[in-house]
Computed example of a mutant assay.
Amino acid sequence: MAYSQLQKVEASVHIKASAEHFYDVFCNRPHHIANISPETIKSVKIHEGEWGTEGSIISWNYINDGNICVAKEVVESIDREKNEVHFKVIEGDLLGHYKSFKTILQVTPKGKGSVVKWALEYEKKENHTPDPHALLQMATEMSQKIDSYLTQGKN
Rank of each mutant, 00 (worst) to 15 (best):
N64S: 15
E123K: 10
G55Q: 05
A19I: 06
E54K: 14
L150P: 00
S37M: 06
A71V: 05
G113M: 10
I146Q: 01
Y3R: 09
E121C: 13
M142H: 07
D65I: 03
V89H: 03
I78D: 08
V89K: 04
E50V: 08
E20T: 08
W60I: 01
F87K: 00
L6Q: 11
E48R: 04
N64W: 07
H128Y: 14
H97G: 12
Y98Q: 09
I46Q: 07
A34Y: 01
L136T: 07
N83D: 05
E121S: 10
I104G: 03
E76R: 12
M138I: 14
T103G: 10
V115T: 11
A2Q: 03
I68F: 13
E54R: 05
E81A: 15
V44D: 00
G153R: 03
S59T: 11
D147H: 02
N28I: 00
M138T: 14
K99L: 13
Y98F: 15
K42H: 12
Q5A: 07
G153E: 07
S4I: 06
H21D: 14
F26N: 02
N155Q: 04
P109T: 09
K145E: 14
K112M: 10
S4L: 06
S148I: 02
K16R: 13
P130E: 11
E48T: 10
M142R: 05
V70M: 13
A139R: 02
M138S: 14
E54S: 11
Q152A: 07
G66M: 08
N155F: 11
L120E: 05
L150E: 00
Q7P: 00
H128R: 11
G96K: 15
E10L: 12
K8Y: 01
E73R: 04
I46Y: 04
N127S: 15
K154Q: 06
K110V: 11
Y62Q: 05
G66L: 09
E39Y: 11
Q106T: 14
K72P: 02
K112N: 12
I90Q: 07
G111E: 14
K82F: 10
K16N: 10
I36G: 00
V25I: 14
H128Q: 13
H133P: 07
A19K: 05
H86W: 15
I41L: 05
D79I: 09
S77P: 11
I90R: 04
V85Q: 04
T108Q: 12
D93K: 04
G92V: 08
I146M: 04
H133I: 10
E141F: 05
I33R: 00
T151C: 06
V25L: 04
V44C: 06
Y23M: 01
P132M: 10
E50W: 01
